[in-house]
Design a protein around this nucleic acid. Sequence first.
DNA 1: ACTTACCGTAAGTCATGTCTTACGAACAAG
DNA 2: CTTGTTCGTAAGACATGACTTACGGTAAGT
Lengths: 103, 103
Amino acid sequence: MSYEQALTALADPTRRAVFERLRAGPQPVGELARHLPISRPAVSQHLKVLKDAGLVIDRAEGTRRIYHIDPHGLGALRRWLDQFWETALDAFVAEAERTTDQP
Amino acid sequence: MSYEQALTALADPTRRAVFERLRAGPQPVGELARHLPISRPAVSQHLKVLKDAGLVIDRAEGTRRIYHIDPHGLGALRRWLDQFWETALDAFVAEAERTTDQP
DNA sequence: ACTTACCGTAAGTCATGTCTTACGAACAAG
DNA sequence: CTTGTTCGTAAGACATGACTTACGGTAAGT
């Protein structure tokens, strides 16, 4: 949803590992936990945070829950970041002129 | 520098407040602390984290240190994010087809 | 109906990080 | 040279959050 939750969610290294694993495609919780150095409940907790942040979506498939990446949270994060990108470049140009100008 | 440090740095709400304040232009530490509900040393510590993450640059001006936004760290974060954006859209399209297809 | 597999949640422990106050250094002004 | 700013760092108190084990609930298979 908000860019703040997305940033907080992606700050944790383990949670990033879970998120990056989903780049390979939709996967169930057990499959994710099998390739990570943490327990399955820990993966579940991380997925809950990622879900609340709008970064992943889960779908039920029998007794398993398949998780995949949600573009929604990524979009919010991208917009917030671009909002800074412009002013950062302006500042960079201003800084370059300030350093160069010496009459 | 790395996108990981940038994410960790921007995860803290207070640190985001410091960072967003710098959008208004280069400012000294005391000026930042004056408009924030925390002490000046706390602002210094946050600026150190932001600096190590490549998000801000400091320049000495007499006894004061002027901080401004550094495009470097923002760029690394943007590239990492865009790397996800594509796969997220692909997944979105695949999900749409999966939900629609019911022969 | 019973067993097995897969998952989420609760309770508790433990580490990480954020804030404060106190101190010392660098520069400008008188 | 002394005084007054501005700032970074150290030390310590405190809250936040990440992980474990234990439990209950749901679906599929025999």
